[in-house]
Nucleic acid binder design. Structure first.
Lengths: 152, 152
DNA sequence: TATTGTTATACTCTATAACTATA
DNA sequence: TATAGTTATAGAGTATAACAATA
């Protein structure tokens, strides 16, 4: 095995680990959320509605189509978790959590953190090491040569 | 903010980063694989067929139903990338890459590693730091001091 | 003319259930 | 009886395209 092949193999392994971990995290999320009686994709939206947001913005943040947000909003409204409130631009509708929605968000938020793999499996120190690495991985523009200064 | 709330907030942030990164990784994978003219889920299977494997085993490794593996195998066969070869147990069929399949796997393998976020954004040293943390998160090793409740 | 949200419809991925052929 | 693979079908999740209201 050449040096290059070795680096490639290692990179593939890390990428695969990353994906595996994220899939576990998602599956954990589903398990955590189930007993609260809300489907995962609705839960995800609720957690994003820290403050009222235009449906369009939600589509951007969820990286999905506007029509799908309509879909989500309908279901969230049926459950009494959000309201559509008119924006100043009269084309726009904001999604705002109702009281029940806020309560749901808080429950979700705590339940998710409590069961978090990141808390269960890593020490405080390990989390402190992990954070800057993930930030750099998630970063849009960073180049490998520069490691010290971490953005955001 | 209490100490507990702070830990929770940090854990949520890390979990979200993890999922975001993995989604980016998957999306990168899709982009990388597209020009090779093979859908992502077929590519994933090809990369797993380092050596011939029973369909059942593939189902386990992909964490999917046996019927779906049949589905994949049909499409891979149509493309001439794999063959079904009989196992010694005559109920079993192995999936084995054809020559075209091996060639595809090599192309995929290189393309994926080359574009890998993990290579592009991290230094050798950072990858060395990241690996053990991910391994522990993935549960490949034993958890930290606290081996509390039995997870999923 | 471009943009927001909606509607109706269609597609992709994946699972379930029933079946066959072995074991 | 239990297991490997197959078939046909169904469902969840999400997108596309055409549309109405507003900018």
């Amino acid at each position: 095995m050449t040096r290059r092949e070795h680096r490639y193999a290692e990179a593939r392994r890390l990428s695969q680990l990353l994906v595996t971990i994220a899939e576990q995290a998602k599956s954990d999320f589903a398990d955590t959320v189930l007993p609260l009686g809300i489907p995962v994709h609705l839960a995800r939206a609720v957690l994003m509605l820290d403050q009222p947001a235009p449906m369009r913005e939600l589509a951007d943040r969820l990286a999905c189509d506007r029509s799908y947000v309509t879909n989500l909003a309908d279901k969230l409204e049926e459950r009494g978790l959000v309201e559509r409130v008119p924006g100043e631009d009269r084309r726009v509708k904001l999604l705002a959590l109702t009281d029940a929605g806020v309560s749901m968000r808080d429950q979700l938020s705590d339940a998710v953190a409590e069961r978090s793999m990141v808390l269960r499996r890593l020490t405080d120190q390990q989390r402190a090491e992990l954070a800057p690495l993930l930030e750099q991985l998630a970063g849009e523009q960073s180049s490998p040569e520069r490691s010290a200064s971490t953005p955001t």
